[in-house]
């Protein structure tokens, strides 16, 4: 055997062995228990702060959540407009946002040719300029127009 290989082959074997030994110590104990991940990471994730509470949590106190079932915004979650609600759910003194600006409604409803046609769209500059959308439209029941 060439002298080069007499040195290189043991060196490569040593390298692979060192890799396997390092791997043995570096792979976390719970890795692979339930899948290709560190199972204990589930516990770590559980400890992370939660920001969203979900519609059911809102419905525990707010009847209004139920009325939304019958109108165009029925598919939206409360937190889509009011922001993450867990802090409010845990302590009602933490107020949620109540967006009332035209520009907020415009995020979905400002005229934009690229939007799906099913989505109601208005030209914010022409449609009752200066007025707030919520003066006429109840955001929970948008087709219930105020007189």
């Amino acid at each position: 055997m060439p002298p080069q290989l007499k040195t290189l082959i043991p060196l490569f074997i040593l390298f692979i062995l060192a890799f396997l030994i390092a791997r043995h110590f570096l792979v976390p104990d719970s890795f692979g228990k339930e899948g290709h991940y560190r199972f204990e990471s589930v516990e770590d994730n559980k400890e992370m702060p939660m920001f969203y509470a979900g519609n059911e949590a809102c419905a525990e106190c707010h009847d209004k959540a139920a009325e939304m079932e019958y109108d165009m915004h029925a598919d939206l979650t409360c937190e889509t407009c009011h922001g993450p609600g867990m802090a409010h759910y845990e302590n009602p003194d933490n107020k949620l946002i109540m967006p009332r600006d035209r520009s907020f409604c415009g995020l979905c409803h400002a005229s934009n040719n690229t939007r799906k046609y099913k989505l109601a769209q208005v030209d914010l500059e022409e449609h009752n300029p200066g007025m707030k959308c919520v003066e006429c439209h109840n955001p929970h029941l948008p087709w219930e127009i105020a007189e």
Binding site: F51, G83, P84, I97, S103, F104, G106, L107, N112, N113, T114, R115
Partner: peptide
């Protein structure tokens, strides 16, 4: 978290199209 939302809402008005 609220600031993130404010930031997101602001950004959404600055993109082109949908």
């Amino acid at each position: 978290m609220q600031e993130h939302f404010q930031y997101l809402y602001e950004m959404l008005t600055q993109v082109q199209g949908y």
